[in-house]
Simulated assay, not measured.
Amino acid sequence: MHVRNKLGIAALGLGIGLGSLATWQTAFAETPSQSPKHQVPRSKDGDVVVALCDGQTTLEVEGVKDPSQISREKAQGISDEMMLAWRKKNPNANWDAPPPKQQLLAQANPPTPPAATSAPIKKGGTTASSGPDDAARKATADVQAGHTYGAFSERDEAVWKESTEQTVREGHRVFHDAKAVGGTVAISCDMCHPDASNTHPETYPKYQVQLGRVALLRDMINWCIENPVRGKPLADDDPRLKAMEAYIYAQRKGVKLDYGKH
């Protein structure tokens, strides 16, 4: 992989994006009713230009005219090189180390969850085996029928825990898959944020300079999808957005809530 560095002053090193058609006029371009968007610099040779989400740190990938030609391996190399350049420009930035390797391996290869229950349930007059989601809904219905939060059993709690972990695992999958998140290039969220490091969900809501307003975690996820990853923002009820939120929060379990912190 051969690239040419074009480095600017970085403000926030969160995520990367691609582009080759827009003229570099400013770090952000804003249109009515939309969040600010990056305008990446034009390559004189028409090559793909890659930009960090600060909108200023860029790399030109020589000889590559179509972003779809970038493999995951090449995208990871681009991400690593750009993040190294950004950190050299910002030596005092508060940048956390990735999670321990054993934690990454555990999430990449989650154990097969045990069946929530072996008892069949009725669906539309037919009998079907129940999975974690079905069991969770049944447990919730049982609790609601009792009209008290104290009406659930240890089994109910186990079912709910497995349902939650199932969502977290799905968030892990989407976070590590550029196509699953809706990106138009080979770059996925984990390339700049290994296993959700430096996402700091415990600091939201907070004012985000990229958006120019107070943002929730999901707002920033969507901003990164739309700008660095060059995809379309997800609807609030999109299962992928919910799963990624769950995954990112799960990665910071036990960290003290400190909203508004930068």
Rank of each mutant, 00 (worst) to 15 (best):
E157K: 14
R155H: 15
D142F: 08
R137L: 12
G131C: 08
R137K: 13
P120S: 13
A116I: 05
A141W: 05
E154L: 10
H147G: 04
D142G: 10
P120C: 04
H147N: 13
G150I: 08
G150C: 03
P132T: 15
A128M: 15
T117L: 01
A119T: 04
T148I: 01
G124A: 03
G125E: 10
D134A: 11
T140M: 14
D156K: 00
A135L: 00
T127Y: 05
Y149D: 10
G131A: 14
D134S: 11
Q144W: 07
I121C: 06
S130V: 12
E157Y: 03
G131Q: 05
A136P: 08
T127A: 10
A145C: 03
G131D: 15
A139S: 14
R137W: 07
K138F: 04
G124P: 03
S153T: 15
K138S: 06
G125V: 06
D156I: 00
A151I: 04
K122R: 14
V143A: 06
G124S: 05
A135H: 00
A158M: 04
A136G: 06
S129V: 09
G124R: 09
A119S: 09
E154G: 15
I121S: 05
K122A: 11
H147R: 14
D133K: 11
S129D: 15
S153L: 04
D142I: 03
A158K: 11
A145S: 15
V159D: 01
H147C: 08
S153F: 12
A119N: 10
E154R: 12
F152M: 02
A151M: 07
R155I: 13
D156N: 08
D134M: 09
K123H: 13
A116D: 04
P120Q: 09
K138V: 11
D156R: 00
D156Y: 00
R137H: 07
A139V: 01
A119G: 02
K123M: 10
T126S: 12
E157G: 04
Q144D: 06
Y149P: 04
S129P: 04
G131E: 12
G131Y: 07
A116M: 08
T148G: 08
P120L: 09
A139R: 00
E157P: 00
P120T: 09
P132Q: 08
K122E: 15
A128P: 02
A135P: 01
T117V: 05
G125A: 06
K138D: 11
T127Q: 11
T126I: 12
E157L: 12
R155S: 13
D156Q: 02
G150A: 07
A116V: 07
Y149C: 06
T140W: 03
E157T: 05
S129T: 13
A151V: 05
D142M: 02
G125D: 05
T148S: 15
S130W: 00
T117P: 06
Q144T: 09
T126L: 13
A141T: 06
R155C: 04
K122T: 14
Y149S: 13
V143T: 13
A151Y: 08
A145F: 11
A119W: 03
K138A: 03
